[in-house]
Simulated assay, not measured.
Amino acid sequence: MNDSEAPAPAEYSYASFYQASPDAQNFNILVNNVRVNNDLFGYSKFYIYQNFTPGTYNFKFSPATTTDPGPSVEKSVSLEKDKVYSIFTIGLRSQTAASGKGQEVLVVEDELEIPATGKAGIRVIHLSPDAPSVDIKTVGTTPNTLFSDVAYKEDTDFMEVNTGNVKLNLVHSETGEVLFTTPNELTLSEKQIYTIIVRGMVTPPANNTNSINIQLYRNYPDR
C-alpha cells in the first residue's frame, strides 16, 4: 500500500445485551463459544453496544454456576454492516418453549436516529412473560398515552417526545388497571434515545421478588 493512502475505515455491526428472564439464574455470555462478560449477567443487567465484525454469530447464554445450572439458551444471528441490534434473554425457565413463554433469545434491530432539537427518542419493549398487553401513559391530571396495546415480545418504533422529567404508569390495555407506577420521575434528555423495558412478573412465584415494573435505559449516546 502507498504510504500516502489512508487505511479503509473499519466496518462494524453493534449489539447490546439485556437479561430480562425474571426467574433465571445468572448467565455467562458466550459468542461463538468464547466468554465475553467479565461479571455475571444477571436479571436486569444491561451491557452497552459492542462492536462486531459483520457476520453470523452464535450467542449462547450459559448458567454461570454449577449449583443452580438451569438451562442454556442460544441463537445464531446474522449481524449486518452498520446495523445496530439489541439481544435479550427472555421468558421463564419454569415454562416450556411450546407455551410461548419459555426462556429464549430475542433479537431486535435498532433504528437509532438522533432526535430533533428539544426532543428525546423513546420506545418500549414488552418482556414480562405473564403480563397482558399494556399501555404506557404519563402520570398527571391529563395523562398522555405514549404507547398502546403492546403485547409480550413486541417492540415499538422509536418516537420523539418532549424532554424533561416524567412519571409513567404501566396500564392493562383492556381493563385500564394500573400495573405499575414509576416511583420517581424519569429524565429524558435532549437528542438522547431510550428504551422502556416492561419486565418482571404480574404474579411472581414464592421467593421471587421480581414483580412487574418498568426500567428505562439509554441506547444513545451509550456512554
Rank of each mutant, 00 (worst) to 15 (best):
Met1Ala: 14
Ser4Ala: 13
Glu5Phe: 08
Glu5Tyr: 06
Pro9Glu: 13
Pro9Asn: 05
Glu11Ile: 15
Ser13Asn: 05
Tyr18Val: 10
Pro22Asp: 08
Asp23Ser: 07
Leu30Asn: 11
Val31Gln: 01
Asn32Cys: 05
Asn33Cys: 01
Asn37Leu: 01
Asn38Ile: 02
Phe41Thr: 00
Phe41Gly: 01
Phe41Arg: 01
Phe41Ile: 00
Gly42Ile: 00
Ser44Lys: 13
Ser44Cys: 00
Lys45His: 03
Ile48Asp: 11
Gly55Lys: 05
Gly55Pro: 10
Tyr57Lys: 08
Tyr57Glu: 09
Asn58Arg: 12
Asn58Pro: 00
Lys60Ser: 15
Ser62Tyr: 14
Ala64Met: 03
Thr66Met: 11
Pro69Tyr: 10
Ser72His: 08
Val77Gly: 06
Leu79Gly: 06
Leu79Met: 12
Asp82Ala: 08
Phe88Gly: 01
Thr89Cys: 02
Leu92His: 06
Arg93Tyr: 13
Thr96Asn: 11
Ala97Thr: 14
Ala97Arg: 11
Gly100His: 05
Lys101Pro: 01
Gln103Tyr: 03
Gln103Arg: 09
Glu104Val: 03
Pro115Tyr: 09
Gly118Thr: 08
Ala120Asn: 08
Val124Lys: 04
Ile125Lys: 07
Ile125Met: 12
Ile125Phe: 10
Leu127Ser: 04
Leu127Phe: 02
Ser128Ala: 15
Ala131Thr: 04
Pro132Val: 08
Ser133Gly: 14
Val134His: 06
Thr138Met: 10
Thr141Gly: 06
Pro143His: 02
Asn144Glu: 15
Phe147Asp: 05
Glu154Val: 09
Thr156Tyr: 06
Thr156Cys: 06
Glu160Asn: 12
Leu170Pro: 09
Glu174Thr: 14
Thr175Phe: 10
Gly176Gln: 11
Gly176Val: 12
Glu177Asn: 12
Phe180Gly: 08
Thr181Val: 01
Thr181Lys: 10
Thr187Gly: 04
Ser189Ile: 09
Glu190Ile: 06
Glu190Thr: 15
Gln192Gly: 04
Ile196Pro: 09
Ile197Met: 14
Arg199Ile: 13
Met201Glu: 11
Pro204Arg: 03
Pro205Ala: 11
Ala206Cys: 03
Asn208Thr: 07
Ser211Lys: 15
Asn213Phe: 01
Tyr217Cys: 07
Tyr220Glu: 14
